[in-house]
Amino acid sequence: MAGSGTAHLRDASAAILRAENLVVEFPLGSTGLKVHAVSDVSLDLLPGETLGLVGESGSGKSTTARALMQMPTPNSGSVFLEQKNLTELSGSDLRELRPQMQMIFQDPISSLNPRRKVTDIVAEPLKIWKRGTTVEQYELVDRVLESVGIDPEGARSRRPSEFSGGQCQRICIARSLMLEPKLLICDEPVSALDVSVQAQILNLLQDLKEQHGLTMLFIAHDLAVVKNVSDRVAVMYLGKLCEVGDPDALYSTPAHPYTKTLLDSIPHPDPDAPKGDFAGLSGEIPSPVAPPSGCRFRTRCPNAQELCEQVEPVMTAVGEDHYVACHFPLLGTPVTL
């Protein structure tokens, strides 16, 4: 995948968030080497849309999310929130925009300060921005807590450790909604939860999205979860995007060999499910310190050719709202789901 390019981006004036050619690199100690965590990633979100971002651990999903939030600022590339380039804003101008984009994290427990009462945690955004009187603040806290399914009465005297993981994630969601953001970035919000609780949170996010007209970037490594919540899906591998498209098309006719592998790896809750004829993914994800030349997936790709080593593929349309960065896209090979 290794793909760069911006063919999959849509009309810039319509997008609520548009990231172009994001690059994030971390210095590796004092060795002079760099971790290429995100390399030339572009994506955009239209109002009310949910973009799902999938990929293996270490593929750069969280780093992308944090680069969008300018935490830290990407090494290069630009992020536009409604046409305002965040990467060029001063610290205080950026701070003014923070309430418009919020984030929730994978580990709900470490996302909440263990020493504070739950209602205080949820009221914190209002206190930071000095919105309303204390009475008004706590009224709103109660309303929002109720809307995420937490009893505000019980939350007043309790600390996060007295709540389960699923409830903590609800509290995190409540906090992120206090300032009425336009954009919500969810970084693996259900990965740490049990399946039974996962469904509760996914439904809750869906309801809140409709109520508040939220635009969401939803990160996960579970393809079924991503498909369930997304209007558009982007697949990431080793710091680059492989494939972007409408979930139904992308899942039924994956064009990128990596997407197909991911789909074939999913265990089905069905003892008779036909096992894919694809031989699984061999080998290991290469080190992001020295990523392969050309297509970054070529070291594990069953279809790799010489061209893949020399030339990096760029995003190209293979269907309506279906883009792939591969020299030899798989076409017309529907997977048996």
Binding site: A199, N228, V229, I266
Partner: peptide, 18 residues
């Protein structure tokens, strides 16, 4: 079984949470 999102379902299928 019903609470697991299934990959063959279309997107935005409502899940039956416990």
């Amino acid at each position: 079984l019903r609470s697991i999102p299934r990959i063959e379902d279309p997107s935005h299928t409502r899940l039956e949470a416990i």
